[in-house]
Each structure stands twice: as structure tokens, then as C-alpha cells.
Design a protein around this nucleic acid. Sequence first.
DNA 1: ATGGCTACGATCCGTAGA
Length: 254
Amino acid sequence: MKLATWNVNSLKVRLPHLLDWLHTAGPDVVCLQELKLEDPKFPRDELAAIGFASAVSGQRTYNGVAILARSPLEEVQIGIPGFADEQRRVIAATIDGTRVVCLYAPNGQAVGSDKYEYKLRWYAALREWLKDEFTRHTRLAVLGDLNIAPADRDVHDPKAWEGQVHVSEPERAEFRALLDLGFKDSFRLFEQAEKSFSWWDYRMMGFRRNAGLRIDFILMSPALASHCISCTIDKAPRKLERPSDHTPVVAEIS
DNA sequence: ATGGCTACGATCCGTAGA
């Protein structure tokens, strides 16, 4: 089973890329973020025609998440239970006995800003919910744009980024708290090239200079991680015309 | 030098992303 996550930064703009990528990469489950469209505009029929069922929590202009799967999506959950939020950032479903959580974490804008405080509140609520999910599901995967670069090796220029949003200590503590629940960062289960990133700034030729961050993740419970045979970042879609600023991350479970 | 792209929804600029 191949699990993937991709922040598409507008599904309307990126749909051709997504359809091509589904064919070439052959994932079984895909978590999408930043759809930037409402549910009625989600291309449900077009995806169904190529074999993917979908669960969607869309929003106009901002946010919006979805899960695509070749098998039925059961027990669909939208949002973090008990955490009232207008912003559509969370959707979960059970697929072939695996609980899949799709996340688009808040950006945080700047350390100390209102949006930063919201990011930390969101993470506190997420942590409590996932602690609960961990007890309910043996096979649990958390995929998405977490908007945290957990270690300096996940940052192209750690000096320049020091203390900034995405790498600040309170954010990194929230990432560690997820690992402390028992999740594995599946990308780090394997040897990886140095300076492996999943996002590059559109500006200043960020991709050409490999000036990026690793902020998109596939976290796995021990039962899944022990059967994980690969986790890779697929840079191919970032090289196309009008790419998303994020690339897909793909993990395979035997 | 704090900009620099891109997408969106409002117009022909402001907001947001990371």
C-alpha cells in the first residue's frame, strides 16, 4: 500500500498535475492540502472515474483538505473533535483497516503573532486528539503539511532561519510531542540525501537553489512503521510549469 | 535591501502563504 501527502496549493490550478501524478506514481491513499475550493467544486466524479473515492472538507480561497483512496473511506471525521475552528485543516478516515489523518497545520506567520498563538493552540488540541486516536487504532498514519521543520537538517539555511516561525522551539516541541506519542517520522527510517526538502519558496529561484524546508510528513504508528519499506520525496512535479510550492511525499507499506 | 512568487477575490491592489 502506497500512502502519499501533497499540498497542491489550489486544486483548481493543480488538477492536471494531480491527475498525471496519480497515474505515474500509483498511490493507494493520497492526502491533499490547500485545496482552496468549496466542496461543490471538488472534482469528485473525475477522480472516481480513475478509481479514487474521496472525502473532502473544502473551503473557499484558503485551506481545504481531502483524502483520496482506491478503497472505501469509512468513519470520516472532519476537524479536531472539541476544537471549534472555521478553518478546514483536518480530515480523517479509515481505509482498509488503517486510520488515516490528513492535516494542514497553520502557518503561524511570525513568532508571537496572533496566528502563531493559533498555531500552538491548534497543535495542543491536535496532540490531545491524536493521543486518543493512538489508543483506538493500531494502524494509524498522520500525513500532511505540518508547517514545522523539526531539525536543522530539515532547513536549507539554519542560521538564517534560527528562531523563525516553522523552526521555533515551541513548534519543534510540538513535533517532538507527536513522536513522544509513539509516531515515527517515516522519512527518517531510511537513509536520505542531505538537504532533502518538501517545500521551496517560489521567490528567488528557491527550487533551483534547493533553498527549501522539509515540512511535509508521513508519521506512522509502530504497527505501520515496522512494515514501512520506503519513504521518498517526489520532486518531479515541482519541475513542471506552474508547480505547487510543495512536492508529494510517498511511503510504502508492505 | 525584509523585497523577490503565486493564488485568490477583489479590481488593476490587498491578503496570505512559508
